[in-house]
Design a protein around this nucleic acid. Structure first.
Lengths: 212, 212
DNA sequence: TACAAAAGTTTCCAGTGTCAACATCCAGGA
DNA sequence: TCCTGGATGTTGACACTGGAAACTTTTGTA
């Protein structure tokens, strides 16, 4: 004797995932600022307080999107990390390209990953740490192989992370028209830019002095 | 026959500036997400709709903070741009250091400058363009002087902006403890990191091959 | 001095996050 | 098989928010 008409079950069965997906969609469409818990719930077709069964509050939901982003980023890194055919210096370039590719493929995740999170949960901290560790390891290996400068991984890893992070941020939210040829397909042009940027980083911005 | 007790005048006389200042303070204290128009108004001691006499809506207020940020950034650039004693390659380094210094000195502005702005006003676009132009000019001059690689300013300017922007973003909102020695004073350590990062960018991350 | 525009206030409304109380469903032990 | 408790979802309420409208106070100026 409920008011419901057939089909729709009371339990969603995977509401958590559905909420995350809806949140990502809404962030892509209308920006992270205007994300509301109620709009997420509405998109999934569920009451406006249902999300509280899965997330303590709105900030935890966005934190979950962020963590998902870091996992996707690590996944994007993985093939580069395990391909034995890439030489150590080039591996750093490919890792950087993978970073930018991730940002362009998942702009909503990317935006949320590098926001202030008022109550940063441990699992978010850990997810981000894991991704950074992949970079640190790649750099260490490159240094051990004599292909990268320095002896301390941070010396290279921080500038490297900075440059791809900065480029990604500028590509995702910045003035695209200033950065790229007008008509070019966004992702392709972005990736080409990423590659040349990281290679500039590798070989230096200073004019070549002696060799060539 | 008003209810007011002496002193406080009906007109504030410079409410616009006061609102901007209050907004900056609140962003620093509680983050940009939790900035509310009412809290800004309250801090200034004014009714919650008074800001509408100066800003169309909340997003325009944050856009104004962002524009103010770009002006401060340009001001930070200025001495570097006009100091005749710096050689062209080093000037790029100093410009990068100035960028990071700005970000650390004005974290609230910085955060808001690189957010999505739903209705990006022209004056904001223009302010950001001006700052970027200073970098482009510096690079062009460096290239003309034969100190920087390439012939197209964008080739160097985009990676350069990326690297300092990325470092700044990571310093302002990222995991500081992962980046810096524990006890060190934040700004000094940050600036040292900025300098070494930009110099790495200038000379390349690859291990030196021939010379030395 | 009159008065219109500028600056600030009060009142109101719809939308939001979150809490508390309630309803429904599923799984496992009697 | 029943029945019962926890997990999941809903309804209703509350305080707070952005914003519109209509009002009041002040000030510059003809």
């Amino acid at each position: 004797m409920t008011g419901r008409e057939a089909s729709k079950p009371y339990h969603h069965n995977d509401l958590r995932s559905a909420l995350l997906e809806a949140a990502v969609g809404l962030i892509e469409e209308t920006g992270a600022d205007s994300l509301t818990l109620r709009s997420v719930a509405k998109r999934v077709g569920v009451s406006h307080t249902a999300p509280y069964r899965h997330f303590a509050d709105l900030s935890e939901l966005t934190a979950a999107v962020a963590a998902e982003g870091f996992h996707k980023l690590s996944a994007e890194f993985h093939p580069v990390r395990t391909d034995a055919d890439i030489d150590p210096a080039q591996r750093l370039v490919e890792l950087g390209v993978a970073y930018v590719r991730f940002a362009m493929k998942h702009p909503a995740h990317f935006r949320v990953m590098f926001r202030e999170h008022q109550n940063k949960p441990d699992w978010l901290e850990e997810a981000s740490q894991n991704a950074f560790q992949a970079l640190l390891d790649t750099v260490s290996e490159g240094q051990a192989a004599g292909a990268l400068a320095g002896t301390e991984a941070h010396e290279i890893a921080i500038p490297a992370w900075s440059i791809v992070h900065g480029l990604s941020a500028l590509l995702v939210d910045g003035p695209r028209d200033k950065f790229m040829p007008e008509g070019a397909p966004f992702t392709e042009a972005g990736l080409a830019l990423a590659r040349s940027t990281v290679e500039t980083f590798l070989h230096g911005a200073a004019a070549p002095r002696d060799s060539r």
